[in-house]
Design a protein around this nucleic acid. Structure first.
Lengths: 180, 180
DNA sequence: ATCTATTCTTGAATGGCATTCAAGATAGCG
DNA sequence: CGCTATCTTGAATGCCATTCAAGAATAGAT
């Protein structure tokens, strides 16, 4: 039952589809990226995608994982920079994914898989944010609340257009308010 | 060319459709509420709705205006209560509209009309929020930034599920941070 | 080299959706 | 009574995600 080569090719094809899907989803958003569009761009028949993925939301999740991994790398590279810089980098990274994050929020109510991904992602970010708060000297009892606040401010910045300067101002203000 | 009675009946029918649409949209969200569903619930043919509204997003906007008007009444009734109570009331009101506000954000990228409604709504809320901040003794130069922060925290609370106690805690913390 | 079972691909449905169109019904007015 | 503006509808149209059944390709067994 060995099937070596096949498995390798599988990975490659899946990766191709994922890369194409990532580009389209980032550029045109979830609703404007039909399975047919992805298929055409990947050079396969629309239903071929269904051999590799359960459904469209599954493709979305695969793409999200790539986007998040990329963003994490970019942000973790700034390990020693001040918090503000890292927050701004995070926003910049996620913003480069276009409306993908907003799309996630709107798919949460349709797809349980997406909801689970979203919840896991949120608690991960929350944990990270809380340790930042504590590391920066905040009282443990308040760190969780402040972390949530900061995350919501970031989400607000992502959901609504802001130029760089304004974004910088708002993040600065938020951090100033949190750390007195 | 007089056409008195007709105009009256028009208003009534439009109102009927709007009420039905409001209930469905609030309960089931934008995507799970098809025009056919609204039509059936209103006892008309699907395409009849198109005589009264340009398209589905137009129906959404009519419903949004109703929802916002209702919320404004409820919040303004608490004119003399502390800010925190009014914020909590606002959240409670908007939350009673189910996923409608999230739906708005996801329609913004599809429909220019919805985008315009959203932008107008946002600047209205922002103005209100800024005057609250100033009224509460905040420095004018910072009021705008703090107002945005508060709005984003509220949006975060609306977009993600929280029980009453947690919501209360987060709002309290946000206000505490803003007002030292 | 041939056969077989698995893996992969596809053309052609299916059912749902928003929206449009052209034909018909209704009702106020001359 | 007939004319015109208003209102309603059945029947398209075209797009979408998803499914199905049939076919092509291939790794390994004989």
């Amino acid at each position: 039952m060995a099937r070596n080569k096949r498995h390798v090719e599988q990975k490659i094809k899946k990766e191709e589809i994922e890369l194409v899907a990532m580009q389209l989803l980032k550029e045109q958003g979830y609703d404007n990226t039909s399975m047919a569009k992805i298929a055409k761009a990947a050079g396969v028949a629309p239903n071929t995608i269904y051999w590799y993925y359960e459904n469209k939301d599954d493709v979305l999740i695969a793409v999200l994982n790539r986007v998040v991994a990329q963003a994490m790398v970019a942000v973790l590279a700034l390990q020693n920079e001040p918090l503000k810089e890292r927050v701004l980098k995070l926003i910049e990274q996620v913003e480069s994914a276009g409306s993908l994050m907003t799309d996630v929020h709107s798919r949460v109510s349709h797809s349980n898989t997406v909801k689970e991904w979203h919840d896991r992602f949120h608690s991960m970010v929350e944990q990270l944010s809380i340790s930042e708060m504590i590391r920066a000297g905040l009282d443990k009892s308040e760190a969780a609340l402040d972390a949530k606040m900061l995350i919501y401010v970031i989400e607000g910045l992502l959901a609504h257009p802001h130029d760089l300067a304004e974004r910088d101002l708002i993040v600065s203000q938020a951090l100033k308010r949190i750390f007195n």
